[in-house]
Design a binder for these strands. Structure first.
Lengths: 314, 314
DNA sequence: CTGAAAGCGCTTACAG
DNA sequence: CTGAAAGCGCTTACAG
């Protein structure tokens, strides 16, 4: 086993080291990252873990599987605290000092600066930085066309946080579909939500308590659509008899409600997978494809949509 | 605005610093953690993000909300690589050097050593370290009693990874329920799974291809139970007519299958919430409660269980 | 081939 | 009150 040398040689040290590693030793990530330029750790920053983020994570992990990169997710617990605006910039800065070789940011509030590559999932509007997003325009257009095809003419819309490209495109899709059917947009049927489910409640209430409520509501996210369902029930509307509801995302919960939610599937798994693959390649200088990826969507029809009463009647 | 001094005083520096912070500046987490003894960051290590872990995470985030602690999740991407055994020890070591003030480990492979507090969710068997787990014995007993009450007498069991206390207790519950009904345990009806859904496929196949297949199968996790459902369908068994299936966990997917899966709910959210609260207190030296928390479970009856054919017949 | 020293980016305890 | 220096745990480039 032992060769001619008896002094403490590099070889001996290597052997000791490997023995230690067998027992689960790892050098401090902090100290080694400070000295080395590369850590083989990628970062993802998030402010909470709604189903949307959880699905994204699965795709990220799949893309990183056996890639040699580990993942650090940095989440601030300060849900409604002072960090709200710009949290993603702060987190990326904390990590990208030397800890991570690059970062993924999910639905950021703004453009993120960093010495290391950053890929945004659902970037802010007008960003030219690397990003992965769904084809929100086509998805939203299809969703509203589905309602129009069922015979709806007064269709309410609950928008998402307007700084995000996704929110903007989904509203554009709503307008485009109405325009295609020759229906003028009624601005009083549009509520300004922010993707947070809570933001949809007063908007849905306002729409449904009008003397002339819409016969259908398209919400820019499933979280908000599920809240619309809740408010509708609370106000005595039966879905889909009195009101059709369509969401966007296809989070797992949307299949669990009664009735199931008709929605636009945007494969959050694929968003995560694509972002992680791109980031990995940007870090290793191998990326040659487009830096702004747009993924297809598809309409999932469940039982929350039906023809409006007026056309179903005589 | 400016007071008498014109030199660069501490006050000026503080002002500059606060201005920088407005713009999203954060000092490097790495460098500051190396110097300070406290970082106000807690860690959680995981090897992947099945629904189980995603639910746990929601509870953790809730407990940390506005607590002043941020969360770092360290996940290795090497799903089937060399890290498998002992990954949690390596990850905890990498983080707890100086990065985190304490760690949560989810379903570890072994006892974890660390200079900082560690709380295990679903600890290994016989561990005396701080932990949070469901009342697996009672939950499993109730699940099997449910099958017995329906009239089943030949009940198969697919066990989980035996190093985990949870797997052990669930098997104990299975044995206890049978014993309570005066039914001897048939060891050939027990398959040794490891909680990984894939591990259940050959075991389910073996049970169902016997000349005398069981009329019901209880799997120690929903992931494995859903795999049993798949295999049963593939082999031409109709659930619940030909075979009843019960799982454990109540992950979101278990409500989505056709038929929905009868299972034991163990509130993974509460596991995460409890673990994070305990860890937070251990770090700040305030914890006074029990260091091993056991949470209640409840049976969720869906459509995957029914009386066996033989008793339903003449 | 081996070992001592410098330095990664910060914070803190100390000297001026 | 202010500023220069030491040191957190490592790795690496360099001197012996």
């Amino acid at each position: 086993m032992v060769n001619g040398h008896y002094g403490v040689s590099a070889r001996t040290i290597a052997q000791v080291r490997s023995a230690i590693e067998q027992l689960g030793y790892e050098s401090s990530l902090v100290a080694s990252s400070l000295r080395r330029s590369r850590t083989n750790v990628l970062g993802l920053v998030a402010h909470s873990f709604p189903s949307y983020t959880a699905e994204v994570l699965k795709g990220v992990m799949k893309a990183l599987s056996r890639s040699g990169f580990d993942l650090i997710i940095y989440a601030n617990s300060d849900l409604y605290g002072s960090y709200l605006e710009g949290w993603e910039q702060r987190h990326v800065t904390r990590l990208s000092g030397t800890l991570t070789d690059g970062c993924i940011v999910v639905t950021p509030f703004g453009e993120v600066q960093s010495r290391t590559p950053v890929v945004a999932i659902d970037p802010v509007r007008g960003s030219a930085a690397p990003s992965v997003t769904a084809d929100n325009l086509a998805g939203a257009t299809t969703a509203v066309k589905h309602l129009l095809d069922l015979g709806h003419r007064r269709i309410g819309f609950i928008a998402g946080r307007s700084s995000l490209a996704a929110a903007w495109s989904r509203e554009e899709g709503y307008r485009a579909a109405l325009a295609g059917a020759g229906i003028p947009v009624d601005p009083t049927l549009i509520g300004e939500g922010d993707f947070n489910p809570e933001s949809a409640a007063p908007l849905a209430r306002a729409l449904l308590q009008r003397p002339d409520p819409p016969t259908a509501i398209f919400a820019a996210s499933d979280g908000m659509a599920l809240k619309v369902l809740e408010v509708a029930t609370e106000l005595g509307f039966s879905v889909p008899a009195d009101l059709s509801v369509v969401g966007f995302d296809n989070i797992p919960e949307s299949a669990l409600t009664e009735p199931g939610l008709t929605t636009v599937d945007q494969s959050m798994y694929q968003l995560g997978y694509g972002a992680a693959r791109m980031l990995k390649s940007l870090v290793t200088d191998e990326w040659e494809g487009a830096r702004q990826i747009v993924l297809p969507t598809s309409l999932v029809v469940r039982r929350s949509t039906a023809p409006p009463k007026s056309t179903a009647g005589p």
